[in-house]
Design a protein around this nucleic acid. Sequence first.
DNA 1: CGATAGCTTGAGCCCTATCAACAGCTGTGG
DNA 2: CCACAGCTGTTGATAGGGCTCAAGCTATCG
Lengths: 265, 265
Amino acid sequence: MEIGRPYSRLLHRLESCRPLLPEDRQRIADLPLTVANVGAGQDIVRQGDASDRCTVVLNGFLCAHKRVGRVQRQITAFFLPGDIADLSSLYLPNLDYGLATVGSAVVAFTPHTALHAALERAPMLTEALWCQSLVQAATSREWLATIGRRDALARVAHLVCEIAVRLQAVGLARDLRFSIPWTQTDIADACGISNVHANRVVQKLRRQGLVEWNTHGISILDWNGLVAAGGFSDDYLALSSPSSGPSTAKPIAARQHDVSQAAPA
Amino acid sequence: MEIGRPYSRLLHRLESCRPLLPEDRQRIADLPLTVANVGAGQDIVRQGDASDRCTVVLNGFLCAHKRVGRVQRQITAFFLPGDIADLSSLYLPNLDYGLATVGSAVVAFTPHTALHAALERAPMLTEALWCQSLVQAATSREWLATIGRRDALARVAHLVCEIAVRLQAVGLARDLRFSIPWTQTDIADACGISNVHANRVVQKLRRQGLVEWNTHGISILDWNGLVAAGGFSDDYLALSSPSSGPSTAKPIAARQHDVSQAAPA
DNA sequence: CGATAGCTTGAGCCCTATCAACAGCTGTGG
DNA sequence: CCACAGCTGTTGATAGGGCTCAAGCTATCG
């Protein structure tokens, strides 16, 4: 799995939202990066901590999680290669969530000072980063609607759809097949259900012939079915394929499918 | 209820996050505003629409809501006087949520072109607005954790705590008493529960002596109790009182109270 | 070959949804 | 002035989705 230059996916991601000047790209390329390998399930930033750097995902997956009460955990986002996982720390004093790896991951840190300098008098770049944080915000809202108003099956289906589309957008899921080292407990914590129930829902998705799902990876057998089961639409991801983008190969039908959102058995 | 100059609360809100230069304040004051009275329950922007202006709340309350399936609705945020309710439209092509009034409200529209011009070569101002959107994102994450991992009573308690703190921060809730024209169905849609159950939860909050709650308003009788019931902490609101702020009079104890979050009956 | 982590399955129960009906209030129109 | 409609809040009964507890199972690994 080639990474290319560490900032290439980041650039691709930024440009999927706003066009960049060559000058802007250079500023990104010039950012001082500290690359780090992080083991599985490690916390990179703890909830509530202050941080003086941002974290870019180069390889693998991160998640944002919040502790609720003493034992409960809610995952509020997943971060994929090319994503900046703690943009909010650039301007807010303390991170309101913990940042952890899902499986082992390769990340790059870049100091806030360098980022602030890069953004100075680079309005397009600033817009591009702001845009990223707006897309992340839109994603939280979508999760909110899903967790608040859909049943467990739809929640998991929706999550799988989202990850699939986002992975395709960065070229990491050829034809609806990908692997991600989350556990069923991670899925449960992301969807606001118990791990036991997450297991049952996964089995149901398998039984319905929507996905093939083993420890090695997920392949979506019936995209339209999964989209319908999850009430998924990719609008909120704002993935207008960039002019330079190499044929983003979007899944067949990720548009409004609000039918049978809570279909009877 | 005096509004002052229409942008005064907005300025106060922006400065609660980042300091502004006199020049920046002037830019805000110079923004062309179109003030509008909007009736109760009206949609200001419909979900999925494009918009060429931003909406500032002057008086009253707005909410962001998403339709799920055919009949279900999830409210993803409330906006209070001083808030910009659709910042995301500044950089994303379509709004991923509908913007509606909760009760009747007074809002001001300002065109994106004017905002973009005001932000050009005004880095502090840009940071301040970005910061607002980051706080809103942090709020979605907090809602996510609450809806995903807390029971109905805690969700409603948490929501009331949040609104109280935010209203106090803009001087609209003297000593934990405020009025907001939401219906129990609105509360249900914000908390991801049914309206019938919302009613029962409200009654329970009353019975437990935590709040006084009638159609005219809410007064919190036992702030610490409500904070404990909702597992509330105001950290995510990033309300560092601004240097100029007129004694923000924060509630007594809005810090970590993760005890008894899901206490047995 | 144990050990640990993750997955699977079953049983019982509780929280919450749904359905249904009624009460209170407000605005409307004859 | 009263009848009526419509919205909001309230209450009861029933049912179902999902949680919890508990125990087996499987796979990977030192």
